[in-house]
Design a binder for these strands. Structure first.
Lengths: 116, 116
DNA sequence: TGGTTACGTAACCGGTTGGTTTATTACATG
DNA sequence: CATGTAATAAACCAACCGGTTACGTAACCA
């Protein structure tokens, strides 16, 4: 398994949680401290800290240091790889009204008729 | 949390596994039976069957029925939503040589020493 | 010096995940 | 009907995840 593939694991896994996606959305508006990031969520700070660690290990955020604050900053570069991977399938979701879609419907139809 | 957001959970989680990504890649070449999908992997068929269930619950595959075979077909539509979500951050990874990048470097620098 | 603030670490807990082996269902064919 | 094949179901296991509470630490401030 290539290194890029390996990173995709971490990237997609990091994106698979609504709290972490919300944190990224917040960071798109600028750097923020941990407590500022934690504020909108009904969870303890250690929980948020864990989410940040996941994001950091996926390379999606960078953590600095300023006195007693650890400002987090968005780093979107891993998202580029994720976007490229997904984009290989673009033609499939743009084929909505084509042969493929008709075939899918046909398949499901046969499935139900047989499985009575 | 919106319904779309909820589906993103399942989509990204499904993509976070190399086996499942490989299955999708294989299905991009056309429908396939479970045993055909299992063949390249060093794991039992029930394990592949579980991966397929994850992909199905994420809506990424559709399963038909033809005699004792359950052909799987790619359904890329959930990927469209994932691509749209990621695309909100495109400007951030295209800003490689801009203010943001400089700020990141500055932040890390301040972490180690003091401002220059 | 001692207190407060911001954050991390450690230990723990219930639920989920990714895999196994074994058994079972569904179908086709001799 | 008996047998073989394709696939799922069930039971089990170790590892991981997302959350908690309790405690530790580093920097600021009075």
């Amino acid at each position: 398994m290539t290194l890029t593939e390996d990173k995709l694991d971490a990237t997609f896994a990091a994106l698979a949680d609504p709290t972490r996606r919300a944190i990224l959305r917040r960071l798109a508006g600028g750097a923020a401290s941990v407590s500022a990031l934690a504020e909108p969520f009904a969870m303890s700070m250690p929980a948020v800290s864990k989410h940040l660690r996941v994001l950091q290990r996926a390379g999606l955020i960078v953590r600095g240091r300023k006195a007693q604050w650890r400002p987090c900053t968005l780093n979107a570069k891993p998202l580029k790889q994720a976007a490229l991977w997904i984009d290989h399938y673009r033609k499939f979701w743009e084929e909505s009204f084509d042969r493929l879609d008709a075939y899918l419907k046909d398949l499901q139809c046969k499935g139900k008729k047989h499985a009575k």
